[in-house]
């Protein structure tokens, strides 16, 4: 069995001046080199859980251990080893693609020839080398998503957190992004990913957890989840069975 890189135990999160827990008694172990999918309807607690795992939010109670380290003691060391691809584009629109990538990579200590070679290689791999010196404001949604991904992975993190990395992009961009993530995973990067695209998650993830109302309802491989659910032929059936058909408008 692979060594675990993330260990979550009895995690709770309640925002100030609210009565409900947005994350409720979550315990998970994510092994090394896994592609872990965190799926759930709007407002289920996915982004809050990812934010806690990235050290952006502090939990109300419970414990998060990443590479045997905890945020309250070794935040800098953990951040050096993780990469984050937020749901927003998280880029400076008036800077060029190259300027954005170089700036964020420099925060991880990357510099000089090595940095420039890595930038060119990543841009080429994601089909954006010809647009390297164009401002982000001129890019399409799919191009911005790809730059967003490069910025999150250029420092070769051991864990890459992605919050809906393929939302709002065309099929071609989506395929390029997924293929690229698979390559990263093959090279040893553990991927923790949230998405609403259930078919994409079914094909991409090695392990899936379904979260609703802050609680993890199911956690297994996509195949096992489908087999364990009566009359389910795909992940969407499992999802509907576990979370219901009610609309979830998140405000």
């Amino acid at each position: 069995m692979s060594k675990s890189v993330i260990e979550i135990s009895n995690l709770y999160k309640q925002y100030q001046h609210t009565n409900n827990f947005v994350v409720k008694d979550v315990s998970l172990v994510i092994p090394e080199k896994e592609i872990f999918g965190l799926l759930g309807p709007n407002g289920a607690g996915k982004t809050t859980l990812i934010s806690i795992l990235c050290g952006l939010l502090k939990p109300t109670s419970g414990n998060v251990v990443i590479f045997d380290k905890q945020y309250n003691k070794q935040q800098k060391e953990i951040h050096q080893q993780i990469g984050v691809v937020p749901q927003e584009y998280a880029l400076y629109p008036t800077l060029t693609a190259r300027e954005n990538i170089i700036y964020f990579a420099s925060m991880y200590g990357l510099k000089g020839k090595e940095l420039h070679q890595k930038v060119d290689k990543a841009l080429k791999r994601l089909g954006l080398l010809n647009f390297a010196d164009k401002k982000i404001v001129t890019f399409s949604g799919g191009m911005k998503r790809r730059i967003n991904l490069i910025v999150g992975m250029l420092h070769t993190p051991k864990i890459l957190f992605l919050d809906e990395p393929t939302v709002g992009v065309d099929v071609h961009s989506k395929n390029v992004i997924i293929e690229f993530l698979k390559e990263l995973n093959e090279k040893g990067t553990t991927i923790v990913y949230t998405s609403h695209h259930l078919t994409e998650a079914e094909n991409f993830c090695t392990d899936i957890a379904i979260i609703d109302h802050g609680e993890i309802f199911a956690h297994d491989t996509p195949k096992n989840l489908i087999n364990a659910t009566k009359n389910a032929s795909n992940l969407e059936d499992v999802f509907i069975e576990l979370t219901g058909k009610q609309l979830r408008d998140d405000v």
Binding site: C54, G55, L56, K76, E77, H79, Q80, I82, V84, P86, Q87, E88, Y89, A90, L91, Y92, P93, F104, M107, Y108, G109, V151, G152
Partner: peptide, 19 residues
């Protein structure tokens, strides 16, 4: 904050004092 670049910086191994 609104573009999300702030989140990216907060998840980097750099103190907010640096930026």
């Amino acid at each position: 904050k609104n573009q999300g670049t702030h989140i990216r910086l907060l998840t980097s191994p750099v103190s907010p004092i640096v930026f």
